[in-house]
């Protein structure tokens, strides 16, 4: 059986293979298009609750555990949680801005958490562009220094960049920078509204011309590098893995079908993740919707869809998704 077939088994069998934990919305940068709803609040999950969550997720066969934020390293118990997750055999991914990942912390990350990959946000190829986005002076130079240190230590690093109106003129230079550093660069072409519906980040959405150009570049690389934006829908019984092979947990224990689908399916202060996973009406509804969407798309494209789209973003954005998805 191939890895893809195994993933299909997770999606079709509702096995939470990948879980994303937003540990905190605290951050030492102030990115303009950050999607977090920092006005949201609640009671943070305790270390004991995370430990219990990890044990439950292991029993549910979760393999990938992503620590995100905010800046996950800003969580006061990040290393305790990371070490616990490592001990339970999760494949750990850390999504970080890299600002604090200097020699000492990078070494701790490697030795105590041993992540499979550290995903670092790159916003431009110059200090002016990167720092216009992060709104923190000196963050670009510091990032480049930290990236070199992480690589020297042997951490596996990947760069993540979102195409914006501010950095679209540096698209090639960002690619060249990544290549010079021998780091993979994964592009995201879509800025999303904030989780509270605020559409201000869309003010700096990339131009259609830049998106088209990036599409062309990525298309040329198809086969050597992949990007989910260009991949056709996989041959699953569901259109995507939202609430089927994955879920997202925010800092206050709210559980969502995925990072984009911000409809709470339950809260870990009130119930455990197994109960939510198996009984939440929201998750069950999302699974029904994504099954129906897979059928619809397959029928309308004769099974030859060229590109993938995110149902949750469509629904949150244009409203057209509601025609396909209905309302949950």
């Amino acid at each position: 059986m191939s890895y893809q077939a195994l993933l299909a088994k997770a999606v079709n069998g509702n096995i939470p293979f990948s879980v994303l934990l937003e540990l905190t919305y605290r951050c030492n940068l102030d990115c303009y298009y950050c999607y977090n709803d920092r006005s949201n609040g609640g009671r943070s999950l305790s270390v004991a609750q995370y430990v219990s969550l990890f044990a439950d997720l292991r029993e549910l066969a979760t393999m990938n555990l992503t620590f995100s934020g905010g800046e996950p390293l800003a969580h006061p118990h990040f290393f305790t949680l990371g070490a616990r997750a490592r001990a339970l055999g999760f494949v750990i991914r850390v999504k970080s801005n890299g600002h604090r990942l200097n020699g000492r912390l990078a070494r701790r990350l490697l030795n105590e958490v041993d992540p499979f990959v550290v995903e670092i946000s790159l916003h431009g190829a110059s200090a002016a562009t990167h720092e216009r986005q992060t709104q923190v002076a000196g963050s670009f130079g510091r990032l480049l220094t930290n990236l070199e240190q992480m690589q020297a230590l042997g951490l596996r690093v990947q760069l993540n960049s979102t195409l914006t109106a501010w950095n679209e003129a540096e698209m090639d230079a960002m690619d060249a920078l990544a290549e010079r550093m021998a780091l993979p660069l994964r592009w995201n072409m879509q800025i999303t509204p904030r989780d509270n519906g605020d559409r201000a980040p869309l003010d700096i959405a990339a131009s259609p011309q830049a998106i088209s150009r990036l599409r062309g570049l990525l298309e040329q690389r198809r086969g050597t590098e992949t990007t989910i934006d260009l991949d056709p829908p996989p041959p699953w019984g569901k259109y995507c893995g939202a609430g089927a092979s994955g879920l997202t947990v925010d800092p206050w224990g709210n559980v969502y079908p995925c990072v984009q689908w911000r409809v709470p399916a339950g809260n870990l202060h009130r119930e455990n993740v197994r109960d939510i996973w198996e009984r939440s009406p929201v998750l069950q509804a999302v699974r029904v919707r994504t099954e129906a969407l897979a059928t619809t798309v397959k029928a309308r494209t004769a099974g030859a869809a060229k590109e993938w789209f995110c149902p949750a973003l469509v629904e949150a954005g244009s409203g057209e998704g509601k025609l396909l998805l209905g309302s949950i």
């Binding site: 997770a10 494949v91 499979f116």
Partner: peptide
């Protein structure tokens, strides 16, 4: 090595090599 059983199959990730065995 990271290992999980998914339904009745197993998945092994060799982290350093970045290789997956099913």
């Amino acid at each position: 090595i990271r290992y999980r059983q998914i339904a009745d199959e197993g998945i092994v990730l060799r982290q350093q090599a970045g290789e997956v065995l099913v």
